[in-house]
Design a protein around this nucleic acid. Structure first.
Length: 216
DNA sequence: TGCCAGGCCGGGT
DNA sequence: ACCCGGCATGGC
């Protein structure tokens, strides 16, 4: 079977099982960008507490947050874990926004995606998954997001080797699928939902995974 | 209790 | 080019 057909079958099977996702949780471009950093190796419920603190302080806006002292930022995002690290990463990202678009985030949507991704990856604390989450979920650009669940699920279906790297796995999708931000958005969201529900353990198999049922 | 969470960095081989 | 410890809180 062609890889595109196989992947579209996966997408259809997950959509049938779970329904559409309406990702990412977050109302504004900037809130989604912050969430992408705050959720690094962290449960989303903890991220929500941090974002609630920022919202209460009326700091979910780039210029306002940039004016906040680092120690205040640390305290507000403490519930999200790794809070000293993440406060620094947010500052570095705000430096980037200040230089690259003067906090006018919508300007980023019109840049060349590949070069914007390269520049995001140069920011300390922004790795490939965070960069792709910002591009896709905050800016609506067609950059496929892969994560630990993506690798785990595809590996358990013997579609990719266990030691596949991030960019290889991203290319596995992007070389086969049309560059469609809505498709990429829903596809990654469904993978995370399937992963949480049926493939949560790092070791072992997940025989009750609905993909097995749909795909035989 | 231990394991896990929508990673990334820096230092050591 | 890999490998690994560190980073921290909260839920189950």
């Amino acid at each position: 079977m062609k890889r595109q057909d196989l992947l579209m079958r996966y997408h259809a099977a997950m959509l049938e099982e779970l329904g559409p996702s309406q990702w990412w949780p977050g109302q504004t471009t900037f809130e989604i960008m912050l969430g992408a950093i705050l959720t690094q190796n962290t449960a989303w419920a903890n991220v929500e507490k941090a974002i609630a603190n920022l919202r209460q302080a009326d700091l979910l806006e780039a210029e306002a947050l940039y004016a906040l002292p680092l120690d205040r930022l640390e305290e507000l995002i403490r519930p999200s874990g790794f809070f000293r690290l993440k406060a620094q990463r947010i500052r570095h990202f705000l430096d980037f926004l200040s230089v690259s678009c003067a906090m006018d985030l919508d300007r980023l949507r019109h840049e060349d995606m590949a070069s914007l991704r390269d520049r995001l990856l140069q920011v300390q604390g922004i790795g490939p998954e965070t960069a792709d989450s910002i591009l896709l979920y905050a800016l609506g650009l067609p950059s496929f997001v892969v994560d630990a669940y993506t690798k785990r699920i595809l590996n358990r279906h013997s579609l990719v080797p266990e030691d596949i790297g991030y960019d290889e796995l991203r290319d596995f999708f992007m070389d086969a699928l049309p560059a469609d931000a809505a498709l990429f958005n829903e596809f990654h969201a469904l993978i995370v939902r399937v992963g949480k529900a049926w493939c949560a353990r790092k070791e072992g198999k997940c025989p009750s995974c609905p993909l097995s049922r749909f795909l035989g």
